[in-house]
Design a protein around this nucleic acid. Structure first.
Lengths: 114, 114
DNA sequence: CCGATCGTCAACCACCTGGTTGAATATGCT
DNA sequence: AGCATATTCAACCAGGTGGTTGACGATCGG
């Protein structure tokens, strides 16, 4: 009884549930990148980053196109839209309320000061 | 050097990456529910649902309050708001508060920030 | 007090995840 | 051709996840 959309959301949310992968997505906001360049800032093997990129591609969050030796990674925002649509189905809050987010962090972790 | 916001998003997205847990959240939109009632529609043991509810509570997506024998589960939309804000930070939907977004990115992944 | 109900705990299982290393493949450069 | 670069593959490992079952403690109703 689990729908196709369900399974798609599974992999999208699972892909987003890792800080390394979220950081990669943020990096790709800037521009398309080769795998090696994606891996550069991380204290982690290239193979590990390669696997993270496959997870992101399987979720549809990025696409990968090989040109010559270099595999270029490109952000694909449509997949994220599916997640947003699901979350907004709750419809109980303003879609982009940064103040609310700040309050959320402050209330949740009052002991942590930057 | 993963930030607090990072780890919070980890558990929120991981909690959302399961169809049973997303279904539970949708059920809780309607009203607060006891654990047994949450479990009723699922073809799964009560213990399994109990564990799912703990995952949701650890993510802050629900709260649980025990009154007598019955443990009541209540939706907590603030945690979901954090996920929404992160996703919409990609700016494909609404105009952004760029100042807040930069602060958010710096907090999200300090070591790759410019 | 007794028996039913609510929910968790503990042990166990199969499978998945995120990481490593070293070898392999494919392409580009000179 | 020969070497360097880009990326993946394969095997492995530790720990996490999602499920089960059975026993257990707590609480309610009669």
């Amino acid at each position: 009884m689990t729908s196709v959309a369900d399974r798609k959301l599974d992999v999208i949310f699972a892909a987003l549930a890792d800080p390394t992968r979220r950081a990669i997505l943020i990096m790709l906001l800037e521009d398309d990148m080769a795998v090696t360049d994606v891996a550069a800032p991380f204290d982690m093997s290239l193979a590990a980053i390669s696997k993270h990129l496959i997870v992101l591609a399987d979720a549809g969050l990025i696409s990968q196109e090989k040109r010559g030796r270099v595999k270029w990674c490109k952000l694909e925002p449509d997949a994220m839209r599916a997640a947003t649509v699901w979350i907004q189905g709750f419809g109980q809050f303003d879609p982009l309320d940064f103040d609310a987010f700040e309050r959320f962090l402050a209330n949740e972790f009052p002991q942590v000061s930057p």
